[in-house]
Structures are given as C-alpha cells and as structure tokens.
Design a protein around this nucleic acid. Structure first.
Lengths: 336, 336
DNA sequence: CATACTTGTTGGAGCGTTCCAACGAAAGGT
DNA sequence: ACCTTTCGTTGGAACGCTCCAACAAGTATG
C-alpha cells in the first residue's frame, strides 16, 4: 500500500463509499450526492490518486488515443502539420501517441504495430513509405488517414493533401506574369509528390505556349540536391527556377549566388511548401505555401468522423496551396 | 467474436492449447514445445491477433512507455534532441508518448497529467516552463530528467544540458582570435539559458581585457528579435556580433545586410545551438553547436537508470558545446 | 523400484477500472 | 395505507493479460 499507487479502492475506503461510487464521481455523473462527491474529491487529493488509463481503457474498450506517424520530425513541414492534428484531436478529448519513422521503412511498420497494440482508435500518417498492401491491412483494422499523399487508393482510408499539380501551375503562372519564359524546374526525385509537381510545371508551361522551354532537371528534396541541380540548370541560362520544395530551393539560391548571379535580379527562384524558415529575412523565399496546419486539422477531423462511422466512403480531400510572394522572385530584366 | 479483436483466448482455442501457454509463447519463453509454438504462431497469423498493451500493462504493472514533453516542436533544436531520446529508449524496448507544450504553460501541466495516467515509467522534459513546486511533485512520482535546463534543483531529478557559460566563452574566444574586440552580444531575453550565455560573454570579454567593450543589447530568440536587436547594435559600430541563438543570429545577419554591410567582411556573426538549418549553404552560419542528439541520448540513459534505481542521487550533467566555423565569421579587416 | 527432478502444460487469481442489475430509502400519487 | 418512482448507492462480473502453484508424464538418480 505504501509503495505502490493508490487505486480507486483506496479512495473508496478513505471516503467511506464503494468503489463504484468513486468511479461514478470521477466520470462526473450527476447521480452522486454532494456530500459523497466532496468526500471523494478530498480523498483523491489526500492520496494523490490518479486514474489508471490502462485499466480504464481495458474496461471501456476505448483508448481515447490516436496514433500519429510522422515521417521525419526534422522536416518543418511535418511539424506544422502535426500541430494541426494535435489541436483538433485534443479538442475532442483524445491524446496522441507519436512516433517518427526514421531511416528504415521496415522500422516504420514495427512502430505502427506498437501503436496498434496500444489500441489507438485512429491513425494519422503524415507522409509514409508503406506499400499499398500494408496500408490496406492497417486501414481495414483502424480508421486511418494519410496526409500529403493521395497516390494510393485504399477503401476506408481518407487522405488530405494539397493539389500539387495546381500548386505547380500557380508557381509557373507567377513567373510568367513577371515576364519569365526560360523557366527550369528542379524536380524532387522519384516520389509521387514530386512527380505531380513536375507534371503541373509541364502542364502550365504548355498552356502558356512555352512548351519548347520545358526543362526538368533531376534533383531532390534536400539543400545539397537543390544546390547540385541548380548548378546543372545554370548551363542553359534560365531566368527563373521553380524548385520542388523550399529546402531544395534554398540550396538552389546558394548555387546561383555562387555563380555570381543575384537572386532575384538575375534569376528568380520559387519553392514549394511554405515552411516557416522560408520566411526568415535572410532567406525571404517566394513559395507555394500549403496550409500545413489546416492539412493536419482536416486529417484529424476525417479520422475522428471515421471512428464513429467505420464504413464511411473514403474521402480524398484536396486543399489548395497559395502563392506567397517574398523576395526571391522579380520581374524579368531585359538583359542589355 | 466476428466484430471485435481476437484475444489470447481465441488464439488458445484455435491452437488447441491453454491461454497460459499462448502467453508464454508470446513472451518468447523457452519452455514451450516446438509443436505447440508452431500451432500458436499459426493461429496468431490466421486470426490477426495483436497483444493488448493496456491489458498487458495492467497485469505486469509496467507500461514500457516513457513520456516526453517537448516545449515547441517547431524549434529544430528540440526535434534533434528528441531524436536522441527516441533512439536510446527504443533500444531498451520502450515506446515514447510525446506531447508538445504549445502556448499555454497551464496546458503543459494538464498534458503531463495525461502522460502520468498512462502510467509512463519515466518523463523526459525537453525544456519546460514548470514551477519548481510542480517539478518537485512530478519527480517524486516518476523518474524525471530535464534537458537544456539545470536551473531548478530537485531531489531525484536529473538534468542534462550544455554549459552555456563555457559555450559563450568559446564564441568570444573565436572572435577574439580573429582579431575582433568590438564584440556586441545580442541576448536572448529573460530566461535562464540566455542569462548564462550573456554571463559567459561578459566573463570572456573581461578575461581578454576587453571589459570596456562589453555591450549587451536586449534581444530574443526569434528571427524578428534578432533583426531588431542587430539594428540597435549597429549604432555602436561593432565588428562582431555574438547572438544568443541561431535563429536570432539569422535575423541579425539580415539586419546587417540591410544596412549595406557584408557578413563576414564587415561584421562577423556567430550564433548558438547548432541547428541543422544553420548549415544550409545560403545561411552557412558559424555557431556554437550543442551536441543535440547526445543531449537526448544521455537524458534517456539517466532516466532509464533511474527507473531501476529510484533513489539514486540527482545527476546534473553538462556536455560541452563545440565551435562550428562556417562562413559568417572572418578575420577583422583593418578599415582603411 | 521408489524417489527426485525436468519438461510442457494448465486453471485460476489478480491487475484497476467500468458498467449493469439490484437494492433500500425517501418521495410521490391515489 | 398501498404501489410506483426516483435517488443514491452497491457488489460483482467483465475487460485481456501475466504469473503462480500445481500437475501429469517422462527421465534421471540412488
């Protein structure tokens, strides 16, 4: 008794009532007399009693917890999405259990398994690298929603993402309006999101009658890859670069400046994502901003809805990204 | 049966053994015959059985989960510390339950309460804003370790932090070696960490015989505050700025450049923390880097040790930060 | 050949909750 | 006076698991 935690029984004896009444009082039932309630509250305080969530979840067969898998905590994009998720689920009385994928996709699966053992009532996957088969199995088990990807259609699984094709077109439109036509795209490598952005670029270029200027340089989603891709792109003397994401765009700017060209005077650069550091004065990056927190909030909403409607048809929601004009794009100067 | 999850009993009947044997097999006991084990493994697969962590934790009275409170997920410093924590605890078979503080310190407390209800076996507080009294109560209840702060001494509570005074001296030493003497410190506002860094600055300046050049400009830990503080600092035409953290340093650089001065040619700037974005080529920030992942790993180690040694004396560990020289500091040029 | 130990297995108790059926007491209706 | 409600309260079963004592059946020991 002295060493281990007090239980509901200890509270009951101390308050001179039954454990059932304590349980009732704890869950805020109205059918408890004021006198009893007061005695219970006192006993709780005196003993430092705390409900055991494991026992509770066993008894009610609900964990009031949702699991969140986040691909990479370092990527500020994901942190901001997570924010939205947390706010939304908290409002509905849920806790979150968070795991971050790390390098190994196989580990990602194991971690999800842990989450499921904890009987999470829903799963939010903020990006992921799971094959369709695994996704299908998971979604069949527990309400699941995927954020930032919508390439794998699974019954009973919702997705929330921005429309990357439309976003890319926004970027190209902006550059065209500034007078650019030699617009090169530094792509983000082999992943569905990057493919969609590249497609949007090609589409927009074609629509503006610039199809002969279409040039996609293979890149990646990191600073270093953006730098390398930009170095290569410069060979065809573009006047503007549309880069697959913000981090790579920052790398690209460094490459441009290293070649003694100025941004945006000589070359305009626009990124994609809208990560908060893009707003740092030193970077001041023009970008296509995803409404990150909204993405998270919406995802959580879908999941919460699905908890009560397990068989609801799959929702694939797209939210639109917006152009954020900062300092790295400018009007084309006719080179003398 | 059809709708709800299979239990250990379902597996037992299916495999034609007792639930006890299933339990044994699941926990990898050697006292299970190969024949039985195989049947159990098959039954598990066929039924899609998954251990119920809540029931398990209730029975063994251990949750194998540790709670992590992270002040602010957006701050890359904390994300990197978290990484270290995760790696370490995972190796020891623990899961983590993560909560992020958000704006309201009161909410922080409530979230910790949730964590405790889940019977977490330990708590890692990655920065926090809790008063000593609360800290004391928590640490008395559950093994707790604080990262990046060591200003509040509580029995049975460990802390791991970098020595901010020493780190600040490293920064000043570096600048002095480059020939600077008009070194201004942009501080980080009213918090223990920033105070320590300012103290270190003053100490080092004095030791170099530069006490008459000591100047501390009130700032903060954000881009905007760094910018503002730098603007003010420029009035005394310094040759170098030592800024309280990296994010503010990036803001300071923007301010310097806006005044048509170049970094590092006209003014050197050094930050503190070693966040990964400081390494972006476009920023290329010289800084005092805390070994962030190590901080997390060590914290987890102390906590894991304390789980088995509840009354171990409090450890207050300091790890040393290191100077990372990049492109924002340079040798003083004697202005012509 | 009895005794002891080993190996594989089992039922039951217990972990801390919630929830249900059931209760006595007080109150209301006729 | 009786029956019916309502109110506050209660014990016990259940949730899914682990662990302990116990037990057959086989193996080794003296």
């Amino acid at each position: 008794m002295s060493t281990s935690r007090p239980t509901i029984n200890d509270v009951a004896t101390r308050a001179g009532v039954s454990k059932s009444l304590v349980s009732l009082a704890l869950s805020g039932s109205t059918k408890v007399s004021d006198a009893s309630r007061q005695r219970i509250v006192d006993a709780v305080a005196e003993l430092g009693y705390r409900r055991n969530a494991a026992a509770r979840s066993l008894a009610v067969r609900r964990s009031h917890t949702i699991g969140v898998l986040i691909l990479d905590l370092h990527n500020p994009v994901f942190a901001e999405i997570l924010d939205g998720v947390q706010i939304e689920v908290r409002e509905h009385g849920f806790s979150t259990m968070l795991i971050s994928g790390g390098a190994d996709p196989e580990l990602e699966r194991a971690e999800i398994e842990t989450l499921l053992q904890f009987q999470v009532e829903g799963l939010v996957l903020i990006a992921h690298r799971l094959p369709a088969s695994v996704l299908r199995a998971i979604a069949a088990d527990v309400p699941t929603v995927v954020v930032t990807r919508d390439d794998i259609a699974v019954p009973n699984m919702d997705s929330v993402s921005n429309d990357d094709v439309a976003g890319a077109r926004l970027a190209v439109n902006h550059l065209v309006e500034l007078g650019h036509s030699r617009i090169v795209h530094l792509d983000g490598g082999e992943n569905p999101v990057s493919h969609a952005r590249a497609d949007g670029y090609r589409l927009a270029m074609t629509q503006h009658g610039l199809s002969e200027h279409i040039r996609v340089v293979p890149g990646g989603l990191t600073d270093a890859k953006g730098y390398a891709a930009a170095c290569e792109a410069l060979s065809s003397s573009p006047t503007a670069l549309f880069v697959a994401n913000d981090v790579a765009a920052i790398g690209a700017i460094a490459a441009v400046e290293n070649s003694n060209l100025r941004v945006p005077e000589d070359i305009s650069v626009i990124g994609y994502d809208g990560i908060s550091i893009g707003g740092l004065r030193r970077l001041n990056l023009t970008t296509i901003a995803q409404p990150l927190a909204d993405l998270g909030r919406l995802a959580a909403q879908h999941m919460l809805y699905r908890i009560n409607n397990r068989t609801a048809p799959a929702v694939r929601q797209h939210v639109s990204a917006t152009l954020v004009i900062r300092g790295t794009t400018g009007r084309l100067k006719t080179r003398a």
